[in-house]
């Protein structure tokens, strides 16, 4: 599998009250063509920042992002604008990501207008096609405004807008976190279906491992801006190597009263990213932490075939 997207030593920094906040620190990842890479981590760990830095919506402070052989981090202005059509983004809050004053037909056609498809007839045909593909009835929805739709329907509209240009890579930033369990399943199925139909490569961001598992070929786990573990989905679930991955796995609510929820999850919350712990950033919550963990930043290394973890004392 050739890498469609490759991220090398990506670092993104925010200035917060005169201090540097490293939202993403030295992250390297590859996503193969046709692959779905799941990216998981708690709120504030830098998942969204990473996604936006890939699209150059937030310029990285360091590192490189290469898409299909082109280094995005070097592109500017017009060249970047043209490149962006091949990469798309879907957001967590489907309602906020639609302009409240434009009709659905207008919103979904917008990418075509931007790319210079001037023929109205063709635009309308393509809008209808993509709306049908995401399970919406074009006649019923095109003339309406976003507030007339439920969250799940708005997410379908967002997906339609992202797909109308037939992009190669779609970054889904928590596309189902704001949705109910029942609607969540519909949208996950839809994304899988769209992936097959349009031959997409997906970077799927979420905080829920169960959701990520349903769609990903490989999973990357992030904590406080750093990568903890990367590996094939089933392998990661069967044998998590990083203690943080194990914690995330235990936190998933199991719909079965005979399985008692894991105790001892009260291991606190992530520390402030403005003042991350030395060494391993997870050490303040890690049951295995020792002096080495405080002194030395663990490097990502191969634990099993295709499975990498950044931990001095990996599990299993």
């Amino acid at each position: 599998m050739t890498a469609l997207l490759s991220i090398e030593n990506l670092t993104v920094e925010y200035a917060v009250g005169g201090k540097a906040l490293f939202a993403v620190s030295d992250v390297s990842l590859e996503v193969g063509r046709g692959e779905t890479l799941g990216l998981v981590g708690e709120s504030g760990c830098g998942k969204s920042t990473l996604g936006r830095a890939v699209l150059q919506l937030r310029r990285p402070t360091g590192g490189r992002v290469t898409f299909d052989g082109t280094e995005l981090t070097r592109l500017d202005g017009e060249a970047l604008r043209l490149m962006r059509r091949r990469l798309q983004l879907i957001f967590q809050d489907p309602i906020a990501s639609l302009n409240p004053r434009r009709s659905i037909g207008d919103i979904v056609a917008e990418p075509l207008v931007i790319t210079g498809v001037v023929d109205r007839g063709e635009r309308e045909r393509r809008v209808r096609d993509v709306l049908a593909a995401v399970g919406l009835d074009a006649d019923l929805v095109m003339g309406r405004l976003p507030h007339e739709f439920s969250g799940g329907q708005c997410q379908r509209i967002c997906i339609a807008r992202a797909l109308i240009l037939e992009p190669e890579l779609v970054i889904c930033d928590e596309p189902v976190s704001a949705l109910d369990v029942s609607i969540r399943a519909q949208i996950l199925n839809l994304l899988e279906d769209m992936k097959r139909r349009y031959g997409l490569t997906l970077l799927f961001i979420a905080h829920d491992l169960a959701v990520v598992k349903a769609v990903s070929d490989r999973i990357a786990v992030m904590y406080l801006g750093r990568l903890c573990e990367v590996g094939p989905t089933e392998q990661l679930f069967a044998r998590p190597a990083h203690p943080y991955t194990a914690l995330l796995l235990e936190a998933i609510p199991v719909p079965d009263p005979t399985v008692k929820p894991a105790a001892n999850l009260a291991a606190g919350e992530p520390p402030s990213p403005l003042d991350p712990p030395s060494g391993c950033r997870f050490r303040t919550r890690c049951p295995r932490a020792d002096q080495t963990c405080a002194d030395v930043v663990p490097e990502l290394r191969e634990i099993a075939v295709g499975q990498f973890a950044a931990c001095h004392h990996p599990l299993g």
């Binding site: 369990v181 519909q186 199925n189 899988e192 598992k213 349903a214 070929d217």
Partner: peptide
């Protein structure tokens, strides 16, 4: 149906979810 729609930890990736 509500129960079935929850992604199962023991089903392999890309298993379509029985959505309502």
């Amino acid at each position: 149906a509500l129960l079935a729609a929850i992604p199962k930890l023991d089903s392999p990736p890309h298993t379509p979810l029985p959505a309502i």
